[in-house]
Amino acid sequence: MFALNQASDLDEPWLQFKNLLVRQLAFCVASPNILAAIPPELVLKHSFQLHANKTWARHFQNYRSRLLYLDQHPQELEMFLQQLKSTRLGLRFEMFIWFWLLDQNYHSYQLLGHSIQKIAGSITLGELDFLLLNTESNKIEHWEVALKYYLAERDFSLACWYGLNRSDTLVRKLNHFSQKQFQFEDALGQQIERRFAVLKGQLYLPVCPRQQVIPTWVNLKRRLGSWGSHLPHQNAHFYRLQRQEWICPASHLSSETAHWWINGLYRQKDKPNFYMFRPAPLLFQNSNHQLYEKSLSL
């Protein structure tokens, strides 16, 4: 079933921690972007960059001692996350990034602002996730952060990667970065000099993909999952992940081995395989299913 070229020795240092919140925080800091590069077919209106894999690896090493402490004493992290009233994973991801950026002793960024609204008169033009001073380069950086799960359908071209809500596609998100979110030249009286998209999560390939090459812009240093509308073999021992575990699974099994299946993300017990189960009707776009898909939006 899982014929993907998935190395079992991918560096996933977030799995060393026991506390679920700390594992998720470690994932948000340490995991590579789901894209290795901006797809060349994307037409950029406002250019932006992606951090290199080694950048996130360095951030994790600098933060590891703090993560080890939080793993034993998670109260500060727990209290910080209590500010979040939404269950949306994308906002939860942003909170973890915010917590890390506030820990200024462990990285080279000075946080200048978070959720900065740009307003012209009575019109809101947009909002910046993070404005930072990089104390190594002495440059002002604008970061937009997103946690995304995209499934490749007909082929692996940029236009064929769909989110759980089918109006959320990879190409639409990248265009939104370029056309909308990175449009601003300044914020809080600071001239923006560099723009970065922090785009993490997971990509999923069909269980039985056609013979085709995975695009070079897909980051193979981030584990790929599989998706399908058929049940795995009964001996595959998959269990269903809780919603928050989509960021990072708990260190223990959070549910029983699945004997019946509903829409969601599953993980294999004895192998690091992820399987997104999507009943066939959910793959088609009509009015009834759009309403159901919207309820699953991140």
Rank of each mutant, 00 (worst) to 15 (best):
Y150R: 15
Y150D: 03
L151G: 15
D155H: 14
F156K: 03
L158G: 07
L158R: 14
L158M: 10
A159R: 11
A159W: 10
C160L: 12
W161Q: 08
Y162H: 10
L164R: 15
N165D: 11
R166G: 09
D168K: 03
D168M: 08
T169G: 07
L170Y: 13
L170M: 10
V171C: 13
V171F: 12
R172T: 05
R172Q: 12
H176W: 08
H176A: 09
S178Q: 03
S178P: 00
Q179E: 10
F182L: 07
F184M: 11
D186C: 02
A187F: 01
G189H: 10
Q190V: 00
Q190S: 04
E193T: 04
E193L: 04
R195F: 15
A197R: 15
L199C: 11
K200I: 06
Q202W: 14
L205P: 00
V207L: 06
C208T: 01
R210Q: 13
Q212N: 03
Q212P: 01
V213F: 02
I214F: 00
T216V: 15
W217Y: 01
V218E: 00
L224K: 04
L224C: 14
L224Q: 05
G225E: 14
S226H: 04
S226A: 14
W227S: 10
S229L: 04
H230M: 07
Q234T: 03
Q234D: 09
N235T: 07
N235I: 07
F238N: 01
F238D: 01
R240T: 05
R240Y: 10
Q242N: 06
R243C: 01
R243P: 01
E245N: 01
E245H: 00
C248E: 14
P249N: 05
P249S: 09
S251I: 06
H252D: 04
L253C: 06
L253F: 09
S255A: 11
S255E: 11
E256Y: 12
T257C: 06
A258W: 12
H259D: 15
H259I: 13
W261K: 01
G264K: 13
D270P: 01
K271M: 02
K271L: 02
F274S: 13
F277W: 04
R278C: 12
P279F: 07
A280M: 15
P281N: 09
L282F: 08
L283H: 15
F284M: 08
Q285C: 13
H289V: 14
H289Y: 07
H289S: 08
Q290N: 08
Y292M: 09
